[in-house]
Write a protein that binds this DNA or RNA. Structure first.
Lengths: 209, 209
DNA sequence: TAAAATCCCCCATCTTTGTGGGATTTAAAA
DNA sequence: TTTTAAATCCCACAAAGATGGGGGATTTTA
């Protein structure tokens, strides 16, 4: 049995949801509020919710800023963000603040139920388009931040490339074999997403390295 | 026998020079004037000077602007500019106007005599520091201006190279054969004194093209 | 009008690059 | 201590680049 709370100001969305969750026998429907303020007024709560469905575009305290507040009072509660827009920035702000799911309001009711269950079981339910963005985010994080960072050796080689030196010359300068230089250059190309020395030089001069 | 005229306003320089030249038996000392205006008033002249020593910093009509005027009236006369400063700009203005020599006023008298003779024989007497500048000038002219100027086509190709494009791609973009692109690239390399695309890119980004 | 530039194309040859593997060593982190 | 990240080196092959020729066409300019 999973207890669920809802904070949603739009009646047309709130009511059907309330109706639907009420009749589910594996879900214990808890409180429903129209604003964060109202929700917090009901504290302390008799039944601590396992899951909170939180609208992101609330009047007064926004759902986004509510996350931290609520997480502090209900650390065990999984928060699923509920929104009409899939604004990239808000998604990550929400996830960083501690939300564990992110659903679009056009999600079918039974999908929402599944999401609630998934969240309660430490899952991370999110609409496909949201999920894609999250993936991309980590993709970038992995490729721009971690994997695009050049090692000292690679930087050194980039400098020689910018100087217009050939593999042979660079190898001589660094007392390495040509193959070593080629090996590093290959990795540099992968990290910078290029495939020629000229592109490396251009990137270097644009300060993109 | 070489006839020499002088236009020099500073007495301390004019007089020793006059004295010295007067006693030379291979030099026919002509007129001496303190200004261009005064010099021109003596026209028409009975003896046309082979050489005119012309101060550059004269009051009234400057020596610099006098060159063209005098050259028109005395096209056969070699003009030696006489100056205390070796201002780069003036040197070239003078040479462009038709001066054939350029001496600093600290030049020893016997050197001046040699310069007069040299000028009369279609030489180009000039003080060492002046000469150096002239050499540099032509050096730049030859390498930076005339021979390093890229044709429109070449510039176009440079842009593609900077974009990291291969010969094949450039050829496709410009509707030329690869060979044409290679031909132009060869010429670009010669003009820029480089021998690889990476060097071209580097130069381009440094604004050296 | 006759040089001088500029542009277009082709050939041949050799070097350099770009790419895809794989192997070893070493130092640092887990 | 095992895993991981970095660095080192090697092989091989196809593609691209660099270099030196040559032959024309057209346009500028002296």
């Amino acid at each position: 049995m999973i207890s669920v709370d809802i904070i949603e100001d739009v009646a047309d969305i709130r009511n059907p949801l309330k109706e639907f969750l009420s009749i589910q026998n594996d879900i214990l429907f808890g409180s429903i509020s129209e604003s964060v303020e109202e929700y917090l007024n009901n504290f302390p709560k008799e039944i601590l919710p396992d899951v909170l469905i939180l609208d992101i575009g609330l009047p007064g305290i926004s759902g986004l800023s509510a996350i931290e507040i609520i997480k502090e009072k209900l650390p065990e509660t999984e928060i699923i963000m509920f929104t009409v827009h899939d604004e990239p920035g808000k998604i990550f702000d929400a996830l960083k603040s501690g939300a564990s799911g992110y659903l679009l309001k056009n999600t079918p009711l039974d999908e929402i139920k599944r999401a609630v269950i998934e969240a309660a079981n430490n899952g991370a339910p999110m609409s496909p388009s949201i999920a894609r963005q999250v993936i991309q985010y980590f993709d970038k994080r992995k490729t721009v931040k971690e994997s695009e960072i050049l090692t000292p050796k690679e930087r050194q080689i980039v400098n020689y490339i910018v100087d217009g030196q050939s593999y042979k010359m660079i190898a001589a300068n660094l007392n390495n074999s040509i193959e070593t230089i080629k090996y590093h250059t290959k990795n540099i190309y992968k990290k910078l997403h290029v495939n020629s020395k000229t592109e490396v030089v251009a990137k270097a001069f644009r300060g993109e390295i």
